[in-house]
């Protein structure tokens, strides 16, 4: 168990060194949400309506946090599939190191990276007029919910990363983009056509974003559906479901790479 902790830290450290020495990727990852905040907040913002009233930038920021968290899965898939492709995973597996260490290290590194992204994005939000209104504790709880979702997505990402080649991993963007838009991230689901509204309301990302809006005291909270009214509960449950499914799946896949 002691070795599991050491091993996971060493694997995580490797990734963190990568980010420090090759900051281009970190900047690229950060540039997208920041530019989006500027485009949606300041360019489209004046034309956007928040269902139930309220300032759009206040509404937008939790949505951006959510999208950033969801996009993080792309880097998990990429890193995992590259390690598998380059034979690094094989060497980890053929060594006496703790087998949980590899995956645990992955989640530590990804959570550190995502926390940094949330921090930068939050600072950027504070500058252009977003804020939290229900106390620091609630705000931290909201960020904890985002990281809980990120943690769940690490497992989904590990599984998918072991499944696909790095070339295919690059295409994950194509699926992630609509998945993060068919949600309450940028526009209230109430303003969408019926069927899409149902999709958006039940999108796991929506639950976390809605719960965060509530905790931040930002506008756009509520709605008639059960999912919208119980967003806090779902924001805890959805990631738990992902972990319950993908933790065992990725462990199995990891132990039994058949190629």
């Amino acid at each position: 168990m002691r070795y599991a902790a050491i091993d996971s830290w060493i694997v995580a450290k490797r990734d963190l060194i990568h980010w420090v020495r090759e900051p281009v990727r970190v900047f690229a990852n950060l540039a997208y949400p920041i530019i989006s905040v500027l485009i949606f907040g300041l360019v489209f913002g004046s034309a956007m309506n928040v269902f139930g009233g309220g300032d759009y930038i206040e509404f937008l920021l939790p949505g951006m946090f959510g999208q950033t968290i969801a996009f993080g899965i792309a880097s998990t898939i990429m890193m995992v599939s590259m390690d598998a492709d380059r034979g690094v995973t094989d060497r980890f597996r053929a060594s006496p190191m703790s087998q949980t260490g590899v995956v645990a290290g992955r989640s530590i590194a990804d959570l550190v990276n995502s926390s940094l992204e949330l921090l930068v994005l939050a600072l950027c939000g504070l500058v252009i007029g977003w804020s939290f209104h229900d106390g620091l504790l609630n705000a931290l709880l909201a960020f904890a919910l985002f990281l809980w979702l990120r943690f769940a997505l690490v497992w989904v990402g590990i599984y998918l990363g072991l499944l696909v080649k790095p070339e295919a991993a690059q295409a994950s963007w194509m699926f992630l983009f609509p998945l993060t838009m068919f949600a309450n991230t940028f526009v209230s689901p109430e303003l969408m056509p019926g069927w899409l509204r149902v999709v958006a309301e039940w999108n796991p990302l929506s639950s976390t974003v809605a719960a965060a809006r509530e905790l931040f005291g930002n506008p756009g909270v509520g709605g008639d559906s059960w999912a919208a009214q119980n967003s806090l509960l779902l924001a805890v449950l959805w990631p738990a479901v992902f972990v319950a499914i993908f933790w065992p799946l990725s462990v199995l896949k990891y132990r039994d790479l058949s190629r």
């Binding site: 380059r86 034979g87 094989d90 060497r91 053929a94």
Partner: peptide
Amino acid sequence: LNGQQSTVDGVL
């Protein structure tokens, strides 16, 4: 085990 590809980490 020394595989076909290099497992050396280029950034380190």
